[in-house]
Nucleic acid binder design. Sequence first.
DNA 1: ACCTTTGCCTAACACTGTTAGAAAATGTAA
DNA 2: TTACATTTTCTAACAGTGTTAGGCAAAGGT
Lengths: 201, 201
Amino acid sequence: MASKDRILRMKEDVRCKILAAAMQISRTEGWQALSMRKIADKIDYTAPIIYEHFANKEALMEALAMMGFKKLALLMQERSQNLDTPEEKILAMWHAYWDFAFAEKEYYQLMYGVQVNCCQFDNKGTDFELPAELIWDQIEASAWAKTKTEEDICKIYYTYWSVAHGLVSINLAKAGDINISEQISQEVFNNAMNAITNSMK
Amino acid sequence: MASKDRILRMKEDVRCKILAAAMQISRTEGWQALSMRKIADKIDYTAPIIYEHFANKEALMEALAMMGFKKLALLMQERSQNLDTPEEKILAMWHAYWDFAFAEKEYYQLMYGVQVNCCQFDNKGTDFELPAELIWDQIEASAWAKTKTEEDICKIYYTYWSVAHGLVSINLAKAGDINISEQISQEVFNNAMNAITNSMK
DNA sequence: ACCTTTGCCTAACACTGTTAGAAAATGTAA
DNA sequence: TTACATTTTCTAACAGTGTTAGGCAAAGGT
């Protein structure tokens, strides 16, 4: 029965449309303004059908966050694959992280809880660790790591991440007035990333 | 008329009780669970009286955030006042920032938008900049600053802040499972703060 | 033709922030 | 004390939220 397939594809299609509508609303009005009825309106349904695809609003947002982690991981891979040394790859990946945060602000807010409370990612096997693993691997692949313990690698990773996430979330959460100039943010980011990488030598 | 004063004091007292009740609820149930009716219940009133003290829920939360900035600034001053050099004061202040973030988790989330969306602090003259100014002053007071531009000082400040805020918010937003050990967080923080301070020499 | 399943919607529940207007308490003046 | 005025507080409601139960109608299978 090919009709079975077609019906399944249609259901999958509705699921995608829900996710797409949710993203569109969050992009134009912010996460705060996202509601089940608004999503349903946008895809010409009523609110309850969403619950046939997602257990609740939180699960929907978690699914979106997972998409975000996949997107970010993909971008990080693209930007690093043609480079040679682990150090170059690491820097390219963090720059991808940085660019993603501003280009896909809404995804980032959801993924890392900047002014949005959602998602706890308790369960293992989520895509939460996908971007982290990519960088982790490159740190381990570097010459520096040969003489280091896992704890040292862990510390390096968190040093990178805290600067990146800190600077990003300060920028994303800031008000209209209190402006760190883009240029200064960029320079602070570049300097810090380089300094941490150099400390691995 | 002393009764006028007494009545004014009573009004002020209700205002304080509203703020205290809101903090207590957020501490036991989280910001997500905070509602106007819950606050009113806790102080034996009905919800509308809150609107005689605060324009709306956001204004209430902004008032709490302002209290947070004052508390943090006070702690930073206490911890640094008996120290001699600007460098020592800076480090003591960032350690105060760190301790405050975990001891007063709910305040911190509100003040810096970690998993809570509130407050935009558009208007100048808020207490938002109070903690920043304390550290800024010490950076300027250091010998290093003599040969530097304002932009350099700005960059140093944001380097400090991004590490501190990044590491704090990663810890505050993390799920139950995904645990960075406290010890590693501490060490990453200490190393980074020392490294940035040393870079000022 | 019947029955079962599926897809979808209407209506409702228990909440949320917020406001308008009535009621009760208080203060002031005659 | 009585009368009016003011302030304080509450009730009731509105519009919105996430979520669920129940029913209608079309489709599928026999």
